[in-house]
Structure formats: structure tokens, C-alpha cells
């Protein structure tokens, strides 16, 4: 069973968009609860996770920016051998994808000491309705471009890695 656990609202809008437009390597029918879940931890999901077959592999994809905290699996420890956890990072903030999509990455780099990506898109791109922006833009090229531009630790995946080819 695939779990898509997203860290914030922006990630949720984007993963919803990708899923609804069939752009991910998973379909909604394959993922837990048939939708991405806005959860940093599993606490409130335990009763539903428990209904899965005990020996079903559980693949958690945590989708966020830096994802510094660990996913606590104590309450599903009995299933430990069937669990895998993937960190899908977009750094320093998920909004960097919008900056790349607007071809403003180089400009943004000049201002990194001054503004965060979230602030940059408000201040310099005048985008305040992030959901409206994501719903009306296909960010797949920006997601792929991000992977070309940024280098992650080996243990961290890129959003591009869960996009269909």
C-alpha cells in the first residue's frame, strides 16, 4: 500500500493536481485512502492502517521541503518488517517549483538572503492564490528542472522520481 503524506497545503494542492491528472506513477486507486494525506505523522491514521492485511508492504512517501523530523512508526511497530519510508524533498520550500516555472530561479538566487521562496512569489511574482496557481499550471517541467538544478542527499528522492516518464 502506498501512502502519500504531504507536509503542507502547497504540497497537497500539487500532489492532488498530479494525481487527478494522472501524472504520478501511482493512481488514486493504489494509494491509501485514495488521496494524498496532509499528515506529518501517522497518529490519526493508525485505526485505518490497522485494517490493512498484516503482511501488506507499507510504502510511505513523505512529501515536503526539508523533512527534518523522523516518521514515528512506534504504533505500527508490529509491521516493521513490511515498512519502507521515502523522503521526497523539494528544498528549501515547495514554492521553489513555482519560481522555476516562472523562469525566475536565477533572479530568486540573487535574493535568497533576503526572502524565502514563499515570500518571493508573493512579493516579486505577486502570486497570493497558490491553490489557484497550481490548479491552472502543469508544474511537471519545473519539477524535472528542479531535479536538474538541485543535488540532494542519496537518501532523499526528488518529486520528479514519482512522476511518470
Amino acid at each position: 500500500m502506498i501512502f502519500l503524506l504531504v507536509e503542507g497545503n502547497t504540497e497537497l494542492y500539487e500532489i492532488d493536481y498530479l494525481l487527478n491528472n494522472n501524472l504520478l506513477i501511482f493512481t488514486s486507486g493504489q494509494i491509501f485512502d485514495h488521496r494524498p494525506l496532509h499528515k506529518r505523522q501517522l497518529t490519526s491514521l493508525i485505526p485505518e492502517i490497522s485494517t490493512l492485511d498484516f503482511n501488506e508492504p507499507l510504502e510511505f512517501y513523505r512529501i515536503g521541503d526539508t523533512l527534518n523530523d523522523e516518521l514515528n512508526i512506534t504504533r505500527i511497530e508490529a509491521r516493521k518488517q513490511y515498512i519502507s519510508i521515502h523522503r521526497v524533498c523539494t528544498k528549501p520550500e515547495f514554492e521553489i517549483l513555482i519560481i522555476i516555472n516562472e523562469n525566475k530561479y536565477d533572479d530568486y538566487l540573487k535574493r535568497t538572503h533576503e526572502v524565502s521562496p514563499k515570500e518571493y512569489i508573493k512579493q516579486y511574482l505577486e502570486i497570493s492564490d497558490i491553490k489557484g496557481y497550481i490548479d491552472s499550471h502543469n508544474l511537471t517541467n519545473a519539477i524535472k528542472e528542479y531535479k536538474r538544478l538541485k543535488k540532494h542527499d542519496k537518501c532523499e528522492m526528488y518529486l520528479a522520481d514519482i512522476l511518470k516518464e
Partner: peptide
């Protein structure tokens, strides 16, 4: 592990069925 932890994690297939739950939801 405590038996209850294993029961609570469906180790003995004793909980409600995920597929049926999803159909309802």
C-alpha cells in the same frame, strides 16, 4: 511485542476489512 499490539495491527486478521471500508468511504 505485546499481543495487543499485534492484534491492534491486524497480525491475526481480526480487524475490519480495508477494502470494504474504502468502498463505503
Amino acid at each position: 511485542l505485546l499481543k495487543s499490539k499485534q492484534f491492534d495491527q491486524n497480525a491475526f486478521d481480526n480487524l475490519i476489512n480495508y477494502k470494504r471500508l474504502m468502498e463505503l468511504k
